[in-house]
Design a protein around this nucleic acid. Structure first.
Length: 205
DNA sequence: TCTAAGATGGGT
DNA sequence: CCCATCTTAGAA
């Protein structure tokens, strides 16, 4: 890996207002973790946007509780929570403090430290990061990293200076049927024809 | 204190 | 399709 080809995204990227736009722009960027001295990373190929004020699917919708407190902080930090008692799901808080927008990273394509990612997964050489719970496990992300500042060196996102943004497909979000009409919002984005996307469905118009 | 539900994943 | 698994939130 030639580190000079990767440039860390500035905090101002996350502090912008439009969480849907940010979710789309995160595709093709690289998510790195440096945990216990192990550097791992992959290309983000699937994301979902969650609006804290208008979106019934958001954990923060009409709820400011212990769990959602980090979502209400200023953009550019990690929101990690435990799902179904087992899976650690990694989100990126966006927008300004008090607004609680976030982007869920649902899949990455392993690029750096692939062997270490497989090790963390239990040595099973299979798809270790094509789903939100799986990528967290492979990258070593857990709830202990909730609130981590993405401008630091533990978890960060970078662009590759020579790569252009990929071709993007749009869909409704996965697993948010409880959100009634908001479940229909086209707020899931993924890289077209990438084998690491978590779930392929027939595209919505 | 009690209970229901959940932004999943893996197996059948 | 089925269900393990356990924290969290909200009710009582």
């Amino acid at each position: 890996m030639n580190t000079s080809d990767y440039v860390k995204i500035p905090k101002s990227f996350y502090e912008r207002e439009d969480v849907v736009k940010i979710a789309r722009e995160l595709l093709g960027k690289y998510l790195f973790t440096s945990i216990d001295g192990i550097l791992t990373g992959g290309k983000i190929v699937e994301t979902e946007a969650y609006n804290g004020r208008t979106d019934k699917a958001s954990h923060a919708y009409k709820k400011r509780t212990n769990r959602t407190e980090v979502m209400y902080q200023n953009g550019g930090i990690a929101y990690v929570y435990l799902c179904y008692g087992i899976h650690h799901l990694f989100n990126i808080v966006t927008n300004r403090s008090g607004l609680a927008d976030a982007v869920l990273v649902r899949a990455v394509e392993p690029i750096f430290g692939i062997d270490r990612m497989v090790e963390r997964y239990g040595g099973v050489r299979t798809k270790v990061s094509n789903g939100p719970g799986k990528l967290s496990k492979a990258l070593g992300i857990n709830t202990g990293l909730n609130g981590t500042d993405l401008s630091g060196d533990k978890i960060f996102i970078a662009t590759h200076i020579k790569e252009k943004s990929p071709k993007i497909a749009v869909d409704t979000r996965i697993g948010v049927d409880y959100a009634e009409e908001d479940a229909l919002l086209p707020w899931r984005f993924y890289v077209e024809e990438n084998g690491w996307v978590s779930k392929q469905r027939t595209p919505v118009k």
